[in-house]
Simulated assay, not measured.
Amino acid sequence: MDYAEQTLWSDPGPLRERLTELPVAPRDLADALENFLIHHVAARFLKFGVPEEAEPDRNLRTVEKLLTAAFARDARPLSQQRELSAYLYGSCHDFALLAASVFRFNGIAARLRVGFVDYFRQGRWEDHWLCEYRTDGAWHLLDAQMGRRAREGHGIGFAVESVPRQRFRSGSQLWLDLRAGRVDPDTCGVSFAGISGDWFPAASVLRDAATLAMIEPLPWDYWGPARNFCLTQAVTDDAARDLDALAQTFEQPPETPEAARASLADFPWAIPGETVLSAVGGRLQERPLR
């Protein structure tokens, strides 16, 4: 397997031909995703709200399930903008996963990246998932959530199809910054959910390592030592030392999934099991990873 192949999560299944309705050019793809997908927090902030039937959308784990839900509400091509009532109400994870699915469908290497960006709130590193894709012999970061309307709303001045590396810190990079005292833990987390502190970036180290190994969880999935990070909102000294070694290994991402899986195998406690502890509907539940 390589990064140009679909995973269990990115595979659109019988709906794969519908991906031809979406452009391959990264910036155009971000614009097109805005036709049928909106972040559930943005919808609440803009006073649209989230329709009751769309509340489960952000817990759909696969592209096949996302597209099935989208077409159940509006069967027209994905290139055509929906009424808000027919939108999917997801998260940054869903934008990134759909983008990766489109890239892989077109033979382009792509992978999800889990980390933090500094362009949502000044002075803060906010949890965010991007899609990293390979073109012209180099990896580029696409913020697939930043379509035209989102770019205007957030005042984004850089090219969202090539997010500057200094504006994004992977889970591993931010953890090492925290440990070195370069970043204040109170400035890291999820503002809208009132989450801050080093425990959330600690869990993101595991999530980013997993996605590099082509295991693609949800942003609120916890496994291994991250179960305790979530329950206690703290990181023990022993866990921190283990995370240091994992983060140092994945600070520079491997070039292939095989290399990522080989590195992850050195940290068996960081590999997700069949189930994960997931925050669903405000409650922690044991859920299947697949």
Rank of each mutant, 00 (worst) to 15 (best):
A4N: 11
Q6R: 09
T7R: 06
L8N: 13
W9A: 10
S10L: 01
P14F: 00
E17N: 10
E17V: 04
R18E: 01
R18G: 05
L19D: 06
T20S: 13
P26C: 04
R27Q: 10
A30G: 07
A32K: 02
N35D: 03
A43H: 06
G49I: 03
V50R: 01
E53V: 08
N59A: 08
R61V: 05
R61M: 03
V63R: 00
E64A: 10
K65P: 02
S79L: 02
Q80T: 09
R82D: 07
E83V: 10
S85H: 12
Y89K: 06
S91V: 11
D94Q: 14
A99G: 07
A100Q: 05
S101A: 14
V102Q: 00
R104V: 00
R104D: 00
I108P: 07
A109H: 09
R111A: 04
R111G: 08
V114T: 12
V114E: 14
G115E: 05
R121N: 15
Q122D: 15
R124S: 10
R124P: 08
H128T: 07
L130T: 11
A138Q: 15
H140Y: 12
L142P: 05
D143Y: 02
M146C: 13
G147Y: 04
A150P: 05
G153M: 11
G153L: 13
H154L: 14
I156Q: 09
F158H: 10
A159Y: 06
S162E: 14
V163G: 05
G171F: 01
S172V: 00
D184M: 03
P185G: 04
P185I: 01
D186L: 15
C188F: 03
V190D: 09
V190I: 15
F192W: 13
G194M: 02
G194Y: 00
G194T: 01
I195N: 06
S196M: 07
A202K: 05
A203G: 15
A203W: 02
L206G: 08
A210P: 02
E216V: 04
E216A: 02
L218E: 11
Y222K: 11
W223Y: 07
P225M: 04
N228G: 14
L231E: 15
L231W: 08
Q233P: 02
D237A: 12
R241Y: 09
A247W: 03
Q248V: 09
Q252N: 14
E255T: 12
E258D: 15
A259K: 11
A262S: 14
S263N: 15
D266L: 15
P268Y: 06
P272Y: 08
T275Q: 11
V276A: 09
L277V: 09
L277I: 03
S278V: 06
G282H: 06
R283L: 10
